[in-house]
């Protein structure tokens, strides 16, 4: 079966089916058709239904039977999408392939990433099934303004040591929103080896970066950053103050979980002593409540 024959077997959307119907003769018929298709008044657009699972498996097996070349052919179709089917079939390959098939698919998508016009689609699929092979290719785009968000999330979802290492390597070279997204994901993955660079990031001018770096350090449980986080929270105003104080509380919690009760208690005591404004009573209460755990 050729690729176009495989694609033809995927179901049409309701919109495609509708387009083949003769136009309604009058407003009444138009209303009736709409009512029949959408019992509720919501959702006045086409709907998607995939094929029966058995047929889908058969079609997926047909694609994989064509090996790497057929996958490359399918990926090329994504460059100028005529309809949803190539994108959907690629996703079906990711969902339904055997482990061996999925490895082939991930390797092929990684190899095509450099030349494909549909990189966001390939990155999305690699987020689902990629592994260390994909990480190396994805990491090339960690400093690309347009793609760094997508690849950073894909690498973080993979989450292996290789993934952490690539994020760590890319951080010093990154700028702007790429720098923010990498810092955040180093925190998501709790990379203790990044504590130094994240601490330095607390002194940069980008407010988003400072906030995200503070949160990342709190999540990592970096005791050395306690004073810097406290200072940032004490001097912040408005929603930034609530956010920064949240990072301080998170750090104390993480330290407590790591068995560093003295450091945690110092943070809680600081909040108890400084959040004296009635509007921040809930923070004082929270600190009191948490420190009570140590005393129980």
């Amino acid at each position: 079966m050729t690729l176009s024959e495989i694609l033809k077997q995927l179901p049409e959307t309701d919109r495609e089916i509708q387009a083949k119907e003769p136009p309604p003769q009058n407003a009444e018929e138009q209303k009736r058709r709409r009512r029949d298709q959408y019992p509720d008044s919501w959702g006045s657009a086409s709907k998607f239904t995939g094929p029966d699972p058995a047929l889908a498996r058969k079609l997926v097996a047909e694609v994989f039977a064509g090996g790497r070349d057929r996958i490359v052919e399918l990926i090329a179709l994504l460059d100028s999408p005529a309809d949803y089917k190539p994108e959907y079939l690629l996703h079906c390959l990711a969902l339904l392939g055997t482990e061996k098939d999925q490895r082939l698919l991930a390797r092929t998508m990684s190899a095509q990433l450099g030349t494909s016009q549909a990189r966001p689609i390939l990155i999305r699929e690699l987020q689902s099934i990629g592994s260390d092979d994909a990480v190396k290719v994805l990491a090339k785009y960690l400093t690309d303004d347009k793609l760094c968000g997508d690849v950073s999330r894909a690498i973080t979802a993979i989450g292996s040591n290789a993934a952490i290492s690539e994020l760590r390597k890319a951080f010093p070279k990154s700028t702007g929103k790429c720098r923010v997204t990498i810092a955040q994901n180093l925190g998501v993955l709790r990379d203790m080896k990044s504590a130094d660079v994240l601490r330095n990031a607390l002194r940069e001018t980008d407010t988003d970066l400072r906030s995200v770096a503070g949160w990342a350090l709190a999540r990592i449980g970096d005791a050395q950053s306690a004073d810097a986080l406290i200072k940032a929270a004490d001097s912040a105003q408005g929603s930034a103050r609530a956010k920064a104080t949240g990072s301080v509380l998170l750090l104390a919690e993480t330290l407590a979980m790591q068995g560093k009760e003295t450091e945690a208690a110092r943070i809680y005591n600081h909040l108890l002593n400084t959040r004296t404004n009635p509007a921040e009573k809930y923070i004082r209460d929270a600190a009191a409540k948490h420190i009570t755990v140590f005393m129980l």
């Binding site: 009191a288 009570t292 755990v293 129980l296």
Partner: peptide, 27 residues
């Protein structure tokens, strides 16, 4: 000071919930 090494975040927060009830926090 009580040792709480190896507490999970969930169990730590659960303990603080009990502590909160004990000290009657009122907004």
């Amino acid at each position: 000071m009580k040792r709480i090494h190896r507490l999970t975040r969930r169990s730590f927060l659960k303990e603080t919930l009990a502590a909160g009830a004990a000290i009657s926090i009122v907004p």
